[in-house]
Design a protein around this nucleic acid. Structure first.
Lengths: 145, 145
DNA sequence: GTATATGCAAAGCGTTTGCAAATAC
DNA sequence: GTATTTGCAAACGCTTTGCATATAC
């Protein structure tokens, strides 16, 4: 896993390159994702940040804006839950897919080389230029059965 | 592919079994999905039905309610597009996954036995009781590259 | 000093719901 | 006749946006 100072530097370089400013709020969101390994809604992040940093003023709009920025910069990634919104995680890890428990909401990550290969082959077969792919397995986790 | 009268009968039986009523609106939605092979948003279906049947009064709430009914009855299925909502299709076909063009919105269906098998194995490995799984490959279709 | 970023509140959008009227059975 | 379904409009929840103020540079 990348060290935080390196991640921060990467983020700052990216901001500079795009003439964007390095702000307390942007750093807080980045740091939050780094320190809290897991999947969070914008609302989660907003609430926890306000709790953990009562001194810093942060609005939910900024959390949304920062997450969008981090996602297009490929520093964060998200999984969609339909009407219920999205959950974000630090996106620097190796590509992976998700098992999602419909009862407790827990998310398990996995990576499968064979599936990855098949996806490439399928895209090729349809002359499709793949830019992304997601796979979600939903059901009941071990604890919830 | 199933013949329409058979599908209709299946639907009517299902309604009867659950003490639900067979209405013009419900039939129209079913027929729409049968006749229009493809993937449609509730809005699409609502608009096209109003156009094609100016004599019948139908509200968008009824379209939503009927699609939900068809989906839980496994007559229709949906793919989620995050904030942009869901698209529905007749769900009686064999299970399949989707290639989605981010430019023209076109959706290609595919089925891959190896991927299906791997999914089963992954669920087993995590002691996960799989109830559903979806896979989406996004990118550019042949025409849009 | 200037341009960008922010918080706030209002608006947006797909979806759901309460309710009185309409309809299937 | 009675229970379910409907259309309508209002409410909903997540997300985005306009704008005046604050802040990074």
């Amino acid at each position: 896993m990348i060290e935080y100072p390196l991640l921060l530097e990467k983020f700052q370089t990216l901001l500079k390159e795009n003439a964007l400013k390095f702000t307390k709020q942007r750093e807080l969101v980045l740091k939050f994702l780094y320190e809290n390994n897991g999947h969070f809604t914008p609302e989660d992040i907003y609430t926890l940040l306000k709790e953990q940093h009562p001194d810093v003023n942060i609005g939910i709009a900024t959390v949304y804006r920062t997450l969008a920025l981090l996602e297009t910069s490929e520093i964060a990634s998200s999984i969609s839950f339909g009407v219920q919104g999205k959950k974000y995680e630090l996106g620097l890890k190796k590509h992976h897919d998700h098992l999602i428990c419909t009862k407790c909401g827990n998310i398990i990550e996995f990576y499968d080389e064979i599936i990855e290969e098949r996806q490439e082959e399928i895209a090729k077969k349809f002359n499709f230029q793949m830019t992304d792919h997601t796979m979600k397995i939903t059901g009941l986790c071990e604890k919830c059965q």
